[in-house]
Design a protein around this nucleic acid. Structure first.
Lengths: 172, 172
DNA sequence: ACGATGAGTTTGAAAAACAAACCTATCTCT
DNA sequence: AGAGATAGGTTTGTTTTTCAAACTCATCGT
């Protein structure tokens, strides 16, 4: 209850590393699949439930967490001859997860390919061209992964080395 | 042991959806952080352990899983006056996860920003320009998320609608 | 009033994660 | 040769989380 507790909690639950913060929310067996299905147009509790085969208490818990963290918002809807209910819709923040899913799909299709071929294909809505996920500069130039380096930002606490693709990690 | 079992198992453990396959491997509390640290140059069991605060039995299990699935490979090393040991190094497949981490960082920095600023910054190794993750065509044109659509591929089993950014998911 | 339906809760059993102690092979030092 | 030291794990017993199945609750059309 004291401020000390609040900040101690924050230190534990709000790590400085974005990967850790994002992972805290998304890195469990179900959350990613829930978001994936949301991008496929699923909004209803019972649809998530039947498509994923997820226990309903877990679904409740995950949806609550995702709503609290602003990935989903609840929006009322009503079927003909039905009571008003709440559907789960991606917010702007939720829709911004598309590149995460895109990157995941791309990796899965490349390195853990299924015998059936890709199940989802990313295309330009305007030209229909096939898309992939890549690093780009602000001026729109595509940079190959081998030419990407990762360095410490202001939030970095760690004394760890930058990642440089040429210099293989630590012990070559 | 019969073929039937094998394929039934495959159906359960090797879903057609790349998101599901990738998530199966990476979407747990620790795997993402292990891979993140690997990109920061960590290779040793004890370094993963002390940096992450992960129980060692869990770390063993995760590293085994990641080695089995080809994200890491074990490589022997020897410190001065030490016995030979095995380090864990990202394979090509593991290094190909960089865009996944990049996308995750970008989302976290944007929608769940820490008060300290980003902890890791992605730059061009050649020009130093700041990078972001985006969808691009094969000819290198950057496509905004709003102009990305996702359609069923050959592996799709589902009768679900394509994702189109304009047409808000299902219940607008 | 009555049953149907969607969206959850509750309950008790099974699986996974956890912390801490322990083990093991090889090294250095004596 | 024997005594630590150390990295990299296993083992053990407890706590959390997940799971499946049953149950509740509010509201609808009949």
């Amino acid at each position: 209850m004291a401020e000390k507790d609040a900040s101690a909690t924050a230190a534990l639950t709000e790590p400085r590393c974005s990967v850790a913060r994002s992972a805290q929310l998304l890195a469990d067996r179900w959350s990613v699949l829930i978001v994936r299905d949301a991008f496929r147009g699923v909004t209803r509790f019972s649809d998530f439930r039947s498509r994923l085969g997820i226990p309903s208490d877990i679904l409740t818990a995950r949806l609550n967490k995702l709503v609290e963290s602003g990935v989903f918002e609840r929006r009322p809807y009503r079927d003909d001859g039905g009571r008003e209910r709440l559907g789960y819709h991606l917010t702007e923040s939720g829709r911004a997860l598309l590149p995460v899913l895109g990157a995941l799909v791309q990796w899965g299709d490349t390195y853990r390919a299924s015998e059936y071929g890709p199940s989802r294909i990313y295309r330009s809505a305007t030209t229909g061209e096939r898309l992939r996920v890549a690093f780009v500069t602000e001026s729109g130039e595509v940079i190959a992964d081998e030419n990407v380096e990762v360095v410490a930002g202001p939030g970095e606490i760690d004394d760890v080395a930058p990642y440089r693709p040429g210099l293989a990690p630590s012990n070559p």
